[in-house]
């Protein structure tokens, strides 16, 4: 039994994560290659949607990566490449969407959520304090009543 466990653990150790293998020519210039890698992680693979281009093996992702290499080699800058993709696939291709009227809610939502939370906490805190004073009042009333009773009895 222990042997099996050991063997399994060993398997886990040697299993390396599977990377998407790019079957096309990557830029040889290290600077272009670095930009290629940065950009391919920035764009969404629209077929698989929750992967970026770098991670995806889908046909579209492959075509887009080839396009990316060619745009880089044609001397386009990062901004021009982003514009090229957004013009065809819309803001959805970007993992970091720009702020505009369509995405305003997306960007504001965390702020709204935190404000609502803050408001709730504030309300609860104030209610807590009111209960405390109420309790204090109750104690005073009880003491006064006790006093009255004593006076009556005496």
């Amino acid at each position: 039994m222990r042997r099996v466990v050991k063997a399994l653990l060993f398997l886990f150790l040697i299993a390396s994560p599977a990377w998407a293998i790019d079957s096309f020519q990557l830029p040889e210039d290290p600077q272009l290659l670095a930009r290629y890698q940065a950009l391919s992680e920035e764009f969404r693979c629209l077929v698989c949607q929750n992967q970026n281009l770098a991670d995806s093996n889908a046909e579209l992702a492959k075509d887009l990566k080839i396009e990316l290499v060619e745009l880089l080699q044609a001397g386009k800058n990062d901004e021009q490449i982003r514009e090229f993709l957004v013009a065809r696939y819309g803001d959805f291709v970007l993992y970091r969407p720009p702020v505009n009227s369509a995405t305003a809610f997306l960007w504001l939502a965390p702020l709204i959520a935190v404000s609502v939370l803050g408001l709730v906490v504030l309300m609860l805190w104030r209610r807590g304090r009111q209960t405390e004073t109420a309790t204090a009042n109750d104690e005073q009333v009880a003491a006064a009543l006790a006093d009255l009773k004593k006076q009556k009895n005496s």
């Binding site: 629209l46 077929v47 579209l60 075509d63 887009l64 396009e67 065809r88 819309g90």
Partner: peptide
Amino acid sequence: YDGRSRIDWGVIA
């Protein structure tokens, strides 16, 4: 078949 035009059309699938 080289996928060039489909990118211009913004075709996903």
